[in-house]
């Protein structure tokens, strides 16, 4: 099934995230990732959602979201015309046997070690989702203790912004 990424500019008020995600739930859409944060102005928050679905459903969810009074803008971010990034923290078991291999893998992926104990290591890696997936695959050879991913954040390339038409 095709995957879509949309950016939703919403009023910065409580309950708005619930209104947006509820629309996905009601129409039985599965969200792959979701990020929310404040924006360049206090007035708005920006929600980035990635999901899978048929083209018709994609059309439907965008139209449904546009009907919410708290939603100011809904924009689909095409892969070719936008930059995307995700951040992951990964905690791996640290033993004398694996220490070297983990370090080599981390160096190759430019993953940064941000916590280090005798028996565990936490690394931080940012980039596109495929790269992160690849790093996880590599780490599976060792013992992964915990993973936390932020989900995708994305902006359109060039000077164009979501607030413009």
């Amino acid at each position: 099934m095709p995957k879509f990424t949309i950016a939703v500019l919403v009023k910065n008020e409580f309950g708005v995230l619930n209104r947006v995600t509820s629309m996905f739930r009601r129409r039985q859409f599965n969200i792959n990732s979701l990020t929310v944060s404040e924006t360049e102005t206090e007035e708005f928050s920006r929600i980035t959602v990635t999901y899978e679905g048929e083209a018709d459903f994609n059309h439907q969810i965008k139209n449904q979201l546009r009907k919410l009074p708290d939603v100011c803008k809904v924009k689909e971010l095409e892969a070719d015309e936008s930059v995307r990034c995700e951040l992951m923290l990964i905690k791996v078991k640290n033993t004398s046997d694996t220490r070297e291999d983990i370090r080599t893998a981390a160096d190759a992926f430019k993953a940064e070690t941000i916590d280090y104990t005798h028996d565990s290591v936490i690394m931080r890696i940012a980039g596109d989702s495929k790269r992160i997936d690849a790093f996880i695959t590599l780490m599976r050879e060792f013992t992964i203790l915990e993973i936390c991913r932020t989900g995708i954040v994305s902006l359109e390339r060039g000077s164009v912004t979501i607030s413009e038409n």
């Binding site: 309950g15 209104r19 509820s22 009601r26 009907k67 009074p69």
Partner: peptide, 14 residues
């Protein structure tokens, strides 16, 4: 009640 009526109103307020 705003939570309960979220999917059955055009909009709701507290």
């Amino acid at each position: 009640i705003t939570g309960i009526t979220l999917p059955i109103t055009k909009h709701n307020y507290i």
